[in-house]
Design a protein around this nucleic acid. Structure first.
Lengths: 140, 140
DNA sequence: CAAAAACTTGACTATTTTAGTCGGGTATAT
DNA sequence: ATATACCCGACTAAAATAGTCAAGTTTTTG
């Protein structure tokens, strides 16, 4: 049970931006160098972050990306959502019919997995990007 | 981010046992029929559950498996552990050297992922198999 | 204006993981 | 004896992952 790298790198890259932007756009090249993430991969990730209004872009020389919300307001759940990284511990469908394992009734464990999803999602809902930066002055 | 089917089916199968065993061994065949899980797959899963002392087996006719602990004492985390289903949201290694992304220092998000792991694991630690059966009388 | 920096986008691919199946056992109750 | 049921390693098709590649467009600066 693990988060994919897209999600992890997205959070890492945005945290990097929060630290290093001084109201300026931050280029993917810089993030790539500081965080050790492939530039090409970052491009793919930021495409999604942009589409989902997490960042906006500035083209051209000295261009880069800018956080749309402040780190204090940006929830981690927003980031994960932008990358389709839903917490979905079960295969059971939420539909009324044929919900779990092809049966018409909810499976014996259904409610438990629902609880787990809620438990995890509330963690991401309550964490802001700024929370990641506490107690770690400009750690690179 | 999701649990694999082995883990889900394991929990489901053990919950089934908790409901349907009357101090008797429960055969995989019965579990397979009731829960709609492939018998062959169940065998593979129970092999692990047995190796990790979650269940014991009774061979021969009328054989099957028996829970070693009572549902009230069996933690969900024990089950997941038996199936190597560790919650490991990050790729960062815990080693002192080369911990995250090949750097010598912890990555900017390291502590956050650690917190998440703890958050999720505590959920599994605090849930017992018997907790899954509340409010659902013999739901199949 | 030319050139470099930096974003834009879709398509492609190797590797790994997942979700099982298969086949050939062994033990035991009746 | 024989049917039932556990035992166990090996195998495999399909999906997901973790990227790369190619071919752009836009904007700043010298």
């Amino acid at each position: 049970m693990k988060l994919n790298t897209k999600s992890r790198y997205a959070v890492m890259a945005l945290a990097d931006m929060a630290v290093f932007s001084n109201a300026n756009a931050v280029s993917l090249r810089d993030i790539s160098l500081r965080q050790g993430i492939s530039l090409l991969y970052l491009e793919q990730i930021f495409l999604r972050l942009k589409k989902n209004n997490i960042v906006k872009s500035v083209r051209g020389t000295n261009g880069g990306y800018i956080l749309i919300k402040s780190p204090k307001e940006l929830k981690i759940s927003d980031i994960l959502l932008a990358l389709d990284q839903k917490v979905k511990t079960i295969g059971c469908k939420k539909d009324s019919k044929k919900s779990c394992n092809g049966k018409s009734t909810k499976c014996i464990t259904h409610n438990f997995w629902d609880e787990l999803d809620i438990h995890i999602n509330s963690f991401f809902e309550n964490k802001k990007l700024s929370d990641l930066l506490k107690n770690k002055e400009a750690r690179i």
